[in-house]
Design a protein around this nucleic acid. Sequence first.
DNA 1: AAAGTACCATTTGTCAGACAAATAGGAAAT
DNA 2: ATTTCCTATTTGTCTGACAAATGGTACTTT
Lengths: 279, 279
Amino acid sequence: MSIQYQGLVTHGLASQIADKIKQAILEGALKVDERLPTEEELAQRFAVSRPTIREALKRLAAQNLIRSRRGPTGGTFVNQPTQAETRLMMANATALLVSMGELSLADIAETRQELESLCCRLAAERRTDEQLQVMREEISRQREPTLSDQDFCASDVRFHRTLIAAAHNPALDLASAGVIEALQPAINLMVFRFRDRAQVADQHAAIHQALMARDGKAALCALTDYMDVLTTQYQAAQAANEQPKISAKTTPTAQTSKTSKANTSTSLSRQARSKKSAP
Amino acid sequence: MSIQYQGLVTHGLASQIADKIKQAILEGALKVDERLPTEEELAQRFAVSRPTIREALKRLAAQNLIRSRRGPTGGTFVNQPTQAETRLMMANATALLVSMGELSLADIAETRQELESLCCRLAAERRTDEQLQVMREEISRQREPTLSDQDFCASDVRFHRTLIAAAHNPALDLASAGVIEALQPAINLMVFRFRDRAQVADQHAAIHQALMARDGKAALCALTDYMDVLTTQYQAAQAANEQPKISAKTTPTAQTSKTSKANTSTSLSRQARSKKSAP
DNA sequence: AAAGTACCATTTGTCAGACAAATAGGAAAT
DNA sequence: ATTTCCTATTTGTCTGACAAATGGTACTTT
C-alpha cells in the first residue's frame, strides 16, 4: 500500500552525482580551491564507475564550477566564480536567445537605454578620474578616421562598458551584461558613415563632460540623443539589408570537419518586428 | 621556419568538439529540434572514440543546448533555449557569486531597488488587469495570519516578479532575474513579526493601487518605503543572527543508500558576513 | 656539496569493447 | 481490431587498459 510512485530516478546517475557535488559546493562543504577526491575514489564513494564520475565532473566543468589538472599534484579543484566569467556566461546566454528569436532587439534596446540611464545618474556621483580618462581615450580613438568599422564598434562597446563600470555597482554591471553584449552583433552590421561617427563621438564626449561635471541630468540627455541616433541608424541599415536577400542558403547539416561557417543571415527583419504591447 | 608555435591544443579533444558543435548551433547549421547524428557516427566523423563524444555532449547538455533520449526515435536534439531556463541559469550563477562572497548583498539590494523602480514606471503604463489580479491575490495571501514564514517570503517574491513582468519587457525581466532571486535567501533568514507582515502587505497594496491608477510616481514612493523596511529588517536580523550560533542545522544532504560523504559544515556565518563596499 | 638530469609515481585524458535500459515500431495472437 | 510480445535502435553505464602530463625523488656530474 505504501508504495512510492514518485521520486525514483529521472535524470540518470551522472546527473544526480553532479547535483550532489554542486550542492556540496553551494553549501560550503567544499571550499574554494579545495581539492576533492580522486575520480577513482569518488567512483568508490558513490558506488559507480569512473566514466560516470567523469561525466558528472564534465557537467560541472561546463559550468565553470570546477577545474581539473593532471599530474601528482593535479586533481579536481573547486573554482572560484568570477564576475567576469559570470558576465561572459550571461552575455552568451542572452546572445543565444536573440539568435533563436526568443528575444527581440527592440526589447533589448529599451532595457539597455533604461539601464544606461540609471548608470548615468549613479556614475555622475561615483565616477573616478581613471574612468574619465578611459572615456577620453576611447573618444579620441573613435575620431581617428583610419579606424575600421569593427574597431569603431568595439571602441563604442568599451565606452559604454566604462560608463556602466563607473556606476560602481557590480550587480548592476552583471545585470547589464546581457543587454550590452547582445546588441553588439546588430550594431556591427551597421556601417557608419564618417558623419555618423563624428556624431557618435560628439555624444560620447557630451556624456563624458557631463560625468566630469557630475551632472547626471546632462549625461542622461546626451545618452538619450545617442540612443536616438543608434535606433535611426539601425532602422536605416535594416531597410538597406532587406533588399539583397538573394544569397543562397547552404545546406543545413553538411558539416563534416571544417566546412562549417557561412552566412549570418539571421533574419534581421523578423527580430526587428517587435512592438509595444497593446493594452 | 614557418612552424606554428601556437594554436595546437589547450583544452582537450572533448572540449574542442563541444565548441565545434556549439558553434554549429550558434551559426544556425543545426536548427532547433533537429536531430544530430548518433554518437557512434559522430565518433567516426570526428575520428575520436565514443566516450570522448559523450563527454562533449555532456558539456553541451549542462548548458541546456541539447537533450538526449534513448530508443529508436531517440538521439540527441538541439534544444530551444527558453527565457525561463535562461532566467534560472542567471539566478543560479548570481546566487553562486553571492555565496562565494564575490557580490555584496548591499550592491544587489541597490540594483534591485533601481530595477524595480524602473519597472514601476513602465508597469504603470503597461500593466494588464490580469497582473493586477495576481497582485491582489498575493496581497490577500500575505495578510493570512496562518501563513508560514517561508510561504510569506515566497509570496513576496511572486509579487515582485509580477511587478517586473508588468513592465512587459522580457529583456528587463531577464536582467532582473539575478538580483531578485539572489536576495531571496537573505530575506528567508528573516522572521517577520505580525506587525512587519502587515506593513509589507500594506506597501504592496500601495504599489498595486498606484499601478491600477497608472500613477508611476506613487508606485515608486511605495516601493521606496518597502525597500526601507526591508533593509531595516535585514540589519536587525543580521544583528540578531550574530549572537545565537548554537542552532543546529538539519543535515542537508542526507545520503540515501551510499555511505559516502561526511560532515557538511555549512558555515552559516561566512555567507551572512557581507557588507558594503568601501569606496 | 650543489646543481642538473633522468626516472618514477600519481592523476586525469582517451580509447576499446561490451552489456543494460529504454523506447518505438512491427509482428503475432486473441 | 485490439492487445501483447518481440525486436531493433540508441543512449546509459561498466570494465579494463593505456597515454599524457607533472611534480617529486634519487642519482649523477661538476
